[in-house]
């Protein structure tokens, strides 16, 4: 009993004044922290805006139009980067989900949810831009091409990821649920792709536009790389900003949690008191 009586009543671990785990953070966590600080987010936003502006000028005015497709082909400079960020989000969701389940550290969950929401945005954008591009080129808004189908499944997985988060009354459990969905989706999507490739293979060769073929002019490739860079910066900015709001939301929850403790009566009776007021415990022998 003495060990207990000596120990002062612990502060609730969630006390907002003391960010938990600040002492022994890994290098990755520190880097994430720097990128998600308000200054880090600001500069990411500036970088993204500059790169997007430059990319818009280059892809619309500098690069020549495609010989075969005309100006429509300029959609490539947004469609391909959008697809890249969509798949980047997906990989990050899977990695962060695994890391969260493994370590239980909330910053991984914040990263996963931020990447998932960015993923919804960019996957939707990819599909919409692809449809716009496909209509004049293929003559159809949609074709059951492996890449298109896989991207659509990706969107459904993200929908599931975000849908399960808020279901349980325990936010940690919601985070674990969505992490499981993110991981299962990560395992699932390659199989979807393979299945559709095989499926198509038995009917007709897949009609895929291959924007990255070596036949592309050097200036087009450079413009594409610039666009990819710009979208990646935009993605990083959105993810970092979203992580920041998620952290604020978590802090607010903790704030609410500690409110009754501050407001209420003397919170905890020391265990020693409980023991002291109890009558002498009867030994096991006297029972029964």
């Amino acid at each position: 009993m003495a060990t207990i009586a000596r120990r002062p009543a612990p502060q609730p671990r969630a006390h907002p004044a003391r960010p938990s785990g600040a002492r022994n953070r890994s290098r990755g966590a520190r880097l994430l922290g720097a990128l998600c600080g308000s200054r880090g987010i600001f500069w990411q936003g500036v970088a993204a805006a500059v790169a997007l502006g430059a990319s818009a000028v280059v892809s619309l005015l500098v690069v020549p139009a495609d010989a075969a497709q005309g100006d429509v082909q300029r959609l490539m400079y947004v469609h391909v980067p959008a697809a890249w960020t969509a798949y980047l989000s997906f990989a990050v969701v899977a990695f962060a989900s695994a890391a969260y389940l493994r370590t239980g550290r909330v910053h991984w969950d914040r990263l996963a949810v931020a990447a998932a929401e960015a993923g919804v945005l960019f996957t939707g954008l990819t599909i919409a831009l692809g449809s716009l591009w496909g209509r004049p080129i293929w003559g159809a808004w949609w074709t059951w091409d492996p890449r298109l189908t896989t991207t659509l499944v990706l969107l459904l997985v993200y929908a599931g990821y975000l849908a399960v988060r808020g279901l349980p009354d325990n936010p940690d459990r919601g985070a674990r649920w969505s992490a499981v969905v993110g991981l299962v989706g990560f395992l699932d999507v390659p199989v979807v792709h393979l299945s559709v490739v095989w499926w198509r293979g038995l009917h007709q060769p897949a009609t895929v536009l291959r924007p990255g073929t070596p036949t592309m002019a050097g200036s087009m490739l450079a413009a594409l790389l610039l666009a990819v860079l710009a979208f990646t910066l935009l993605w990083a900015y959105l993810v970092a900003a979203r992580m920041r709001t998620e952290r604020a939301a978590q802090r607010t929850r903790r704030e609410l949690l500690s409110a009754p403790v501050r407001r209420g009566v003397q919170p905890v009776a020391p265990v020693a008191d409980l023991v002291a007021t109890a009558p002498t415990p009867q030994g096991a022998g006297s029972h029964g």
Binding site: P260, G283, H287
Partner: peptide, 20 residues
């Protein structure tokens, strides 16, 4: 401490139960 949603059901409870 255990919170359901935002409603705390237990707040910093300390308790010791000894055998017997």
């Amino acid at each position: 401490t255990r919170v359901f949603g935002q409603q705390p059901a237990l707040v910093r409870v300390r308790l010791v139960v000894r055998p017997g």
